[in-house]
Amino acid sequence: MSARYLPYILILPVTLFLCIFFLYPFVLVAQQAFSTGNGFTLDNFRNVTGHWKFPISLKNTLLLAAAVVPVQVVLALLMATMVSRMKKGRDMVLYIWTIPLGISDLAAGIIWLAIFEQSGFLNSMLSGLGVIDKPANLLTYQNPWIVFVAIALAEIWRATAIMLVILVAGIGLIPREYYEAAEVFGASPWKRFMRITLPLLRPSLSTALVIRVILAFEVFAVVQAIGGTLFPVLMSETFNYQFELLNGGAAAAIALIILAISIGFTVMILRLLRVPKGATI
């Protein structure tokens, strides 16, 4: 076998795998989205974006991402800085903090439902302490903000660790000498964080943000468990079109809209956190 073809032969299996399991289904979904049975059409897109629930679910999805992601960035940075400064017990703390990652998102949703529902922990605690007379139903359409906060909390609890592990690895890569130099040249701990950690963490930070933002647009199970139909998001609409209304074309169209939004934000994040030309980080 000639050495010239060897690299291509070696990447053939993974290329085939990607084509069969990713590219082909993707083409099918695109095909489904752009047709209603007779040729190319945008009807599916007009259909879903014209529906009264579309703007609400788009707004909800964006609001949730806007509320959850910044909190998670700050929390993950804080936690990563803490962990990387620990001399003892570092791994244990990291393991404990990443436990939520091992729980399925539906299970995470159910855990937080168990806290917020009428017979849940929060109600029992509040009535036990005498703050309220009798358990109240918090997760109703009269309390949209409580529903929103409960979902946001569940999301923060569930998915901060995914940023944390990326940032911990990133911080570990920054040589200690940079911090020592910054200290000697008069940078306070806060300045060291702002002027050394953050800029040198840019590659990890953009990876973590991209993953997290994409996940935020795909939020579904947690919302479904806590909010049910009270809090429609893009993904739950996709689910409804596919399995309740049995309209595969519309479901595919929403899926592609989610993809477009994700790509848009990914490009934005990569641009925003771009390392200046020539700088090697």
């Binding site: 940079y178 130099a181 000697v184 040249f185 050394i196 800029p199 700088a279 090697t280």
Partner: peptide, 15 residues
Amino acid sequence: GISMVFQNYAVFPHL
């Protein structure tokens, strides 16, 4: 009132 030159220079790569 000191300043220092480090063994691996510690020249910040992002500046």
